[in-house]
Design a protein around this nucleic acid. Structure first.
Lengths: 196, 196
DNA sequence: GATGTCACATACCTTTGGTATGTGAAAGCA
DNA sequence: TGCTTTCACATACCAAAGGTATGTGACATC
């Protein structure tokens, strides 16, 4: 860590407070339902401060999502590796669903991110985090000839899409427990379809 | 068809023109990038006219999407039935992908709809159209014991999600032809995972 | 042909994203 | 220590866009 002056330390704190406030509001009221004023107020600063730290509303949103993506990826990366790569992949899927069940209400929805930032910007962020995990597992499965050789990028995207869609169902349907169980099974089955 | 006065006929034409203009702009510049003024101008009317026919911007967007959903569902419904239900399901998937390849650029993205209208409103609309087709096929497959008995609602949602995600890949990745082919294969494989 | 209605236009308000500029406390330097 | 500079923010303002309130004229009704 670099040496930090008092001012830099304070600024860092302010930035962090803005991100925290933004994440709270964005996850509760979505992007268009959250004004910059509201974020500033929640963080006990003014719009000026927000615009000093970020280029605009989208930039705040992007940074908030990046934080979230990092956190989720750490949870998935913490899943202990298994001897069997397929079992490992399934375990990671389960870990993600568990996370969503636990934190869903306090999460920025991925579809929202895609729409606000655009597909490309979203992918650029997520590639570095959650998607990296999937890519590694897919790579091992394909390289060892245990998964059909479709375009790797596509496979990763489709699996990620599956998981995202699963999480959306978790957030919207009643009887979370039953849904959670069914989704685990379906994910397993659908991925099994890609086995070689 | 009811008897229509001249005024009603004109009004209907205006409404249609607004929808047409809205669809064009929304598919090109997304929701937040399209102003009501712009829609009004494109349709050769004023904001007043738009607000006379619709409750607001979201309502216009919703109606535009409903139109699109209907059109897509008609394309899928036009797929000739097959002896084997699984083959029929695959054929419908292919039809959807073909449609996206052909019309993708002129289509309102589904993720956009979900974010703007919310998951529930989106589902309420799509249930009546595209989703109905999937539901029928899934129902037959499950009832005849050829598909695993997960919650029907979930299965339908997940399959729809898969297809939506596939279409997103089609719109964003280069080499559409290769992607198209791979997606067809992957969809088939992943659905096969649900076979009994 | 007088009256009512309704499809739309006009004018206006309000919110909000964004910008331009001011200010005071901390940092750098003599 | 005291002066200058920097920078993290606050204040004031602007323009665009969603939404509302009201006006108006062509068409329907009697």
């Amino acid at each position: 860590m670099e040496t930090q002056t008092r001012r830099q330390a304070y600024a860092e704190e302010t930035r962090e407070a803005i991100l925290e406030a933004g994440h709270r509001l964005f996850s509760r009221q979505r992007f268009s339902g959250t004004s910059l004023e509201a974020i500033a107020k929640e963080a006990n600063v003014t719009k000026g401060a927000v615009y000093h730290h970020f280029k605009g509303k989208r930039a705040v949103f992007s940074a908030c999502f990046e934080r979230q993506a990092k956190q989720v990826s750490e949870v998935i990366a913490a899943v202990p590796q298994q001897d069997d790569d397929w079992a490992y992949a399934f375990a990671q899927c389960r870990a993600f669903l568990d996370y969503v069940v636990g934190h869903g209400k306090h999460t920025i929805a991925l579809q929202e991110v895609i729409t606000v930032l655009g597909w490309d910007a979203w992918r650029a962020i997520d590639c570095h985090y959650a998607m990296g995990n999937i890519e590694r597992v897919v790579a091992r499965l394909q390289d060892s000839g245990r998964m059909k050789p479709y375009s790797r990028e596509l496979v990763v995207n489709m699996i990620y899409g599956l998981i995202v869609n699963a999480s959306m169902n978790l957030n919207s349907l009643p009887d979370v427990h039953q849904v959670h169980q069914d989704l685990n099974g379906m994910l397993r089955d659908m991925l099994n379809g890609l086995k070689l």
